[in-house]
């Protein structure tokens, strides 16, 4: 499997580390239901075959964190984005809807 790093270009999987589900966000620690929310955040995964958004880190390259959309049934990579850009866009949307 190869990942097309936005900085470095296409590189072998040996340069990257997998860091899990990119669709979850850390719950509010002060929420009255924080325990249940953290259990869901840390452990509960639907694991549905098909496209999935996941975090990868270019550990042996430019050290960029990436959000990779990958079909977990076929390993086909559908998109690679900078995790920073994804987080900034998510924060901007959250502010816009607040």
């Amino acid at each position: 499997m190869r990942i097309n790093c936005p900085c470095c270009g296409e590189r072998g999987i040996d340069e990257f580390s997998y860091y899990g589900d990119a669709t979850v966000t850390r719950p509010d620690l002060t929420s009255p239901t924080a325990m249940a929310e953290f259990v869901a955040y840390a452990f509960e995964r639907a694991n549905i075959p098909g496209p999935h958004r996941e975090l990868w880190y270019h550990a042996a390259g430019c050290h960029l964190w990436l959000v990779v959309t990958r079909n977990i049934a076929t390993h086909e990579i559908l998109s690679v984005e900078s995790a920073r850009d994804v987080a900034l866009a998510r924060n901007a949307n959250a502010k816009g809807s607040a």
Binding site: C8, R11, E15, G61
Partner: peptide, 8 residues
């Protein structure tokens, strides 16, 4: 020439 790669 002048290409750079961070790799191993």
């Amino acid at each position: 020439s002048n290409g750079v790669a961070i790799t191993h």
